[in-house]
Design a protein around this nucleic acid. Sequence first.
DNA 1: CTGTTAGCGCGTTCAC
DNA 2: GTGAACGCGCTAACAG
Lengths: 350, 350
Amino acid sequence: MTVTLADVAARAQVSPATVSRVLNGNYPVAAATRDRVLRAVAELDYVVNGPASALAAATSDLVGILVHDVADPFFGVMASAIQAEIGGPGGRAGGERLAVVCNTGGSPERELTYLTLLQRQRAAAVVLTGAAMEDPEHQAAVAAKLRRLTEAETRVVLCGRPPVPDTGSVALPFGNRRGARELTEHLLGLGHRRIGYIAGPAERTTTRHRLEGHRAALSAAGVADDPARTVHAAYDRRAGHTAARALLDADPSLTAVVAANDTVALGVCAALRAAGRRVPEDVSVVGFDDLPFSEDVAPALTTVRLPLAEAGARAGRIAAGRETAPEEGVEEAAGVLVVRGSSGPVTTTR
Amino acid sequence: MTVTLADVAARAQVSPATVSRVLNGNYPVAAATRDRVLRAVAELDYVVNGPASALAAATSDLVGILVHDVADPFFGVMASAIQAEIGGPGGRAGGERLAVVCNTGGSPERELTYLTLLQRQRAAAVVLTGAAMEDPEHQAAVAAKLRRLTEAETRVVLCGRPPVPDTGSVALPFGNRRGARELTEHLLGLGHRRIGYIAGPAERTTTRHRLEGHRAALSAAGVADDPARTVHAAYDRRAGHTAARALLDADPSLTAVVAANDTVALGVCAALRAAGRRVPEDVSVVGFDDLPFSEDVAPALTTVRLPLAEAGARAGRIAAGRETAPEEGVEEAAGVLVVRGSSGPVTTTR
DNA sequence: CTGTTAGCGCGTTCAC
DNA sequence: GTGAACGCGCTAACAG
């Protein structure tokens, strides 16, 4: 049988309550007693029973971090930063917290399932990252879940995700609209007028916001926005490949392509090269996010750097209760345009 | 107050026991009663109390996946595959399992901490991914933990990680030695003799195995292994950058560089370009792992493809108890050499 | 500072 | 097929 707190108490010749107190460090205990208890714990190799402890205390040390895709560095970088701030001492009993990443795969159902699972575990906090799905029904369901969670004292933080009003959650969204606008303005400034746009998956807030920024830039510059120049694609290299091909087949005169993110941009570059077009001489390509590899590829990607790690760290601290939430519960994190080799002036040779 | 099973029972006019039976579906219940209970559950928006349930049943639906670095696609791809097989129906009560990724940051202490945390939660299974640390003391501590876990009925699977004998764990290691050997043989076949080697972090099994494979290839070909041509670096782009510079400063006549993995290889390529060397004309560069971006970068990386997703999926199924473990508890997954543009024949121009 | 006494919410015998 | 009763292992008052 596994050893219980009572076993430790017996061995240390104290009451179970005292053992609990030593372990949780919440009440004063005589140094000598403490030593005796700790020795017994070590000797018996005792490990607290989490469920029992959580049941009695009506709260657990579990913190969930929801991401759309763990395999995507965009989420990996955020998750890592969040987790780094949450893990470590500081749990309920001054002990360790269990910060844990849940991969929804971009599925609304799995997102809700994970939320329920975390609610079931009486999680201490939940951090949701990345775009929200735009399906109204799903949004309502998520909002209801979040409300229920905050009502049960679970802290809810939205990192890189738009606020969900009236849920008691804190939001640290990214400035996607503005970043996207600057990106397209950069291309316009280089003389580009026929610009293809590869948007992310439909029905995602991030996709819409970036697209809105792009269009705002075009219309401000008086450039017509040909709908045929916008296609949607998943956030992966293969989708970027396919989309770039489709875009160029439809309009071979494009001089620039804006990709949903850096991963897609990389696929676009590869597709372009395969089609015999040089980047940036023939076609400029820009991405979004500024992932680690974006600086090293050739040509290095022009993109918008999002403060993934910084926002993650802040979200982590708020979730851990170590930092106070912003006023109004919302604080936008801006992206900054990073110009590198993948974008260049339009070449006048036609 | 949050609604409990008793509340549901009251509303459905049945005993708590019946509600429990309906929820867990383990005992026969009259269809009419079941409906009544389910309706009450829906009406009250009842969510099971995980800790209470885990306490009573002495086991939970939690499955932990340990990775060194969530921000690294190497782990992301594996974690995603593992999680996909574990999540979904099939938990203790036919319900959902909570598959969860834990980021150790490559720290031995955090690895042990997470193991303890999962043990404390009475996790149903634990999957450890990636290299093991070679510090004997830490290895012993991990082995002890794993033994304790399996004794407590927690399934333990090692994915892309060497076996730990006598712990009741199942291992699906990667063929790092053989893959590394083939990679270096490929370079030797192209005429390279002065080959730099950027190994991964010291004290990691993967680092050692790949290095051994490299050296085996060199010695089989009768090529002296100059120790000055091997340096260690972390698994990130910046480290690759720095290491490449150091290597070339020490010996500018190198015609090829083997990198610890693709991420590092990318950093090496960037450093080479920055130093005015062309890849592969002046210097060939090869990586390891075949991450998603490796195919799209220019030049595309010659590397060893590891079956990250396949091994992860198998590990996930074993952890979920849906597939039987291999005989002997060990099953190696081989890597395959993928030759692309970043490696080429030695140019005789000196 | 420490022991005693009650539950926390649920799963599970055992009867009916 | 269903209910009653007990206990999982721990924390939280309450005494002392």
